[in-house]
Structure formats: structure tokens, C-alpha cells
Simulated scan of single mutants.
Amino acid sequence: MVYPGAAEFVPDTDDLGALAEASQACKGCDLYQNATQAVFGAGSRKARVVFVGEQPGDQEDKAGEPFVGPAGRLLDKALAAAGIDRDDVYVTNAVKHFKFEQRGKRRIHKTPSRTEVVACQPWLLAEFNAISPEVVVLLGATAAKALMGSSFRLTAHRGEVLHLPAENATVDLDADPEVVATVHPSSVLRGPPEDREKAFDALVADLRVVASLM
């Protein structure tokens, strides 16, 4: 399916509050039909680092705020362990509406399609241009491919200091932030219990790379 995209719904402003308000009216793809609300980013316009996840989860969809569920709490723990001040961070997602499959009373996360990610990208770029971050951290494969291109492999470049590809014509930013890709905190939680400490430590190691760039 070809979606019209969010561009026509994104106002020409660098006011994050105005952007967040406008996102509630977005119909750039079909995900708005079943989600409770759009979940825009959160944090200071003066944030030095922007963290980009995949999409809001069940708790985020209900609360209207990003990273407030279990993955968000684990991210906060990892930030503290890496020595990154939460006040220096802005958190958002590549897709602003929750995509899910209903199973009884439970809403089970479904990965957004590439076309849905591309349709939502104007919101993400508007956030970047409003903040002009020094560093962008891509959490998980969906977020990484959203900005680095569909051929990007997280496992091959995890923890490296990168830049957005110049040949990616869909990414038009006023700034040129350094980029670090790592796993999404939810992957640590989904892993085998006996491996979670090791996975958490690996996430913290990647975030220490981010801290060194600040």
C-alpha cells in the first residue's frame, strides 16, 4: 500500500509543542485508525542527544508519552549506568502511532512496515530540525533503517560512530549529527533471563560511546 505520508500534516515550525499538537491530526498512514493517539517525542529542545525507537508500545499509546513502559525504564537505567544525564536526552520514535494485533484483551506489538516508517518520517525530521542534536542514537533495526537506509545492518555497525548517509535523499536535515546505532531496550527484556545481564551491559557499553561524544 502507498500512503500519502505525513508531510501535509507537519506545520512549518520549530516549536515542539506545536508539532506535538499537530501530530494528533495526522492521517499520513492507516495506523491512526486503531491507535489511541499519536505519541510524539518528549524532552527539552536543548537536548544534546535524540534517541529514536521504533514505535510507541501499549503503555505509551495509552499514556501519550514515549518510553514510559518497561523498555523505557530499562533505558533510563542504562542511561544512568553510562553516565548520561536524562535531561540531556530527547526520546522519540520513528513511527508515532502504535501498530498492534488484537489477541483477546491484549494488544500485541507488530513491526511497522517500511512504507509506514517512510510515511511518518517528516515528523521525525521536524523534531531533529527543531532540536539540532549533536548525537542521534538509533534503537533497534527499524529506527536504524529509517535513517540509515534499508540495507543498513545493525549487527554489523552496532556501537560505531556514524553519520547519516549523504545519498539518502529522504533525509534532509539542517544539522549533521553523529549517529550511534544499538539495540532497542525491549530486546534486552525479551531475551532469555540468563542472558539479560550480558545484554544490558552491552547496551550500556554502546551508550558509553554516546556519552563520549557529548
Score class of each variant (00 low, 15 high):
11 P>Y: 04
11 P>D: 08
12 D>I: 06
12 D>T: 12
13 T>S: 14
13 T>V: 03
13 T>H: 09
14 D>I: 12
14 D>N: 09
14 D>Q: 13
17 G>T: 11
17 G>S: 09
17 G>P: 03
18 A>K: 15
19 L>I: 10
19 L>N: 08
20 A>Q: 04
21 E>P: 00
21 E>R: 10
22 A>T: 07
22 A>E: 05
23 S>W: 00
24 Q>V: 10
24 Q>N: 11
25 A>I: 00
25 A>S: 13
26 C>K: 07
26 C>F: 08
28 G>I: 02
30 D>E: 15
31 L>Q: 12
32 Y>S: 05
32 Y>I: 04
33 Q>M: 13
34 N>P: 00
34 N>W: 13
34 N>V: 10
34 N>K: 15
35 A>C: 06
36 T>V: 14
37 Q>E: 03
37 Q>I: 00
37 Q>D: 01
38 A>S: 12
38 A>P: 05
40 F>G: 14
41 G>I: 11
41 G>Y: 15
42 A>S: 12
44 S>C: 08
44 S>W: 06
44 S>G: 02
45 R>T: 15
46 K>W: 10
47 A>Q: 13
48 R>H: 09
48 R>P: 05
48 R>K: 14
50 V>C: 12
51 F>T: 01
52 V>G: 03
53 G>E: 05
54 E>S: 10
56 P>H: 14
57 G>N: 06
57 G>W: 05
57 G>K: 02
57 G>A: 04
57 G>E: 04
58 D>K: 14
58 D>S: 14
59 Q>H: 01
62 K>M: 02
62 K>C: 02
62 K>E: 10
63 A>H: 07
63 A>L: 01
63 A>C: 02
63 A>V: 00
65 E>W: 10
66 P>K: 01
67 F>N: 05
68 V>P: 10
69 G>T: 02
69 G>C: 08
71 A>M: 10
72 G>E: 01
72 G>M: 04
73 R>V: 02
73 R>P: 02
75 L>W: 03
75 L>S: 11
75 L>C: 12
76 D>W: 00
77 K>E: 15
78 A>P: 05
78 A>M: 01
80 A>M: 07
81 A>N: 05
82 A>S: 11
83 G>A: 15
83 G>H: 11
83 G>T: 09
84 I>P: 00
84 I>D: 01
84 I>F: 05
84 I>V: 03
84 I>N: 01
85 D>G: 02
85 D>S: 05
85 D>N: 09
86 R>C: 12
87 D>F: 11
89 V>S: 06
89 V>G: 08
90 Y>L: 10
91 V>P: 00
94 A>Q: 05
94 A>T: 10
94 A>V: 13
